[in-house]
């Protein structure tokens, strides 16, 4: 049982890490603290559900619909809501406060819409539940596939940011936004792209999550908080750090839920977060 708990934790942690990557790109490059980030994850989960039950589209193929949609939604959110805040702000700190307030409002708007459409109970679908055996533990194949997809997307993202010119411009804006113009980079354009990309990753994370567990409309807020904890634990903008922190949180949640009480998983997450803040406020790997 302990072993299968560990495997569960790694699967959960893989999704958390992916979702946190999206948040760290939005915050690190676009400098928007997006509290409605988890709602885009939920959008990914609900949209995958609708495509699966309504159009019997496989959740994996659904990714090709859900991810572009999440990208577009985030692109529009940045252009319509965030850009005016960035434009009018005299200091970068101002953007942070304003964007927190606006996205906090958005969180409730999205939550309301989801509840209206899907009800406040669990929404899910049965898919790939046949178990496979990993290291002696029996795990639903949907979970394994989810982990594989999260790894694949994360790997692609890592390759894109470290190996391509586009990734280099992202890193330039993330580290020294004020100097981007010197090399002909339009900071606003890159920020918008990063915000939309972060949203696309959130959508993918939601789709993957829905492949192995049902969701409720209020899960988005918790996911945002967990992603935030992971981003801060891993160090802001540190992709490897987010991966490690995501796995730690996933494994700890699975262990606590197995050995102590399922109701205490969130408490355990925050206990770790508190310890990290006290011991390593700049992240585990700073």
């Amino acid at each position: 049982m302990l072993l299968s708990t560990l495997v569960f934790g790694v699967v959960l942690g893989g999704t958390y890490a992916l979702v946190a990557l999206g948040l760290t790109i939005q915050y690190g490059v676009a400098r928007i603290m997006n509290l409605s980030f988890g709602e885009v994850v939920m959008f990914g989960a609900f949209a995958t559900f609708v495509l699966f039950t309504g159009a019997s589209l496989s959740p994996v193929l659904g990714l090709f619909v859900v991810v572009p949609l999440a990208f577009a939604i985030s692109w529009i959110l940045y252009t319509v809501l965030m850009r005016p805040l960035v434009k009018r702000a005299r200091h970068p700190e101002r953007v942070e406060i304003d964007s927190i307030l606006v996205t906090f409002g958005l969180l409730f708007l999205f939550q309301g819409l989801f509840t209206q459409a899907f009800g406040s109970g669990y929404t899910g679908y049965g898919w790939l539940q046949a178990p496979v055996e990993i290291l002696g533990a029996r795990v639903a194949s949907g979970r394994v596939l989810g982990l594989g997809l999260a790894c694949l997307i994360g790997l692609g993202l890592w390759a894109a940011t470290t190996r391509t010119r586009w990734g280099l411009t992202m890193r330039a804006v993330a580290t020294r936004p004020a100097f981007a113009a010197l090399v002909g980079i339009d900071e606003n354009r890159v920020a918008r792209q990063a915000f939309a990309l972060g949203g696309a990753i959130a959508g993918a994370g939601g789709a993957i999550l829905s492949m192995y567990q049902p969701v409720t409309p209020i899960d988005g807020g918790f996911l945002t908080m967990k992603a935030l904890v992971i981003v801060i634990m891993g160090g802001i903008g540190n992709m490897g750090g987010a991966l490690a922190a995501g796995l730690i949180i996933g494994i700890v949640e699975a262990l606590v839920s197995y050995a102590v009480d399922p109701g205490l998983t969130l408490a355990a997450t925050y206990a770790i977060f508190l310890a990290v803040l006290l011991w390593r406020p700049k992240g585990l790997f700073a």
Partner: peptide, 28 residues
């Protein structure tokens, strides 16, 4: 012309304080 488009027009600025991407490598 926007400041970020000046480079495209052939005007390159080395500002006071250098404006380098200090966290990135020379190559980058």
């Amino acid at each position: 012309t926007n400041d970020f488009d000046l480079v495209e027009k052939g005007i390159a600025l080395v500002p006071e304080g250098r404006g380098v991407f200090a966290e990135l490598t020379v190559d980058d």
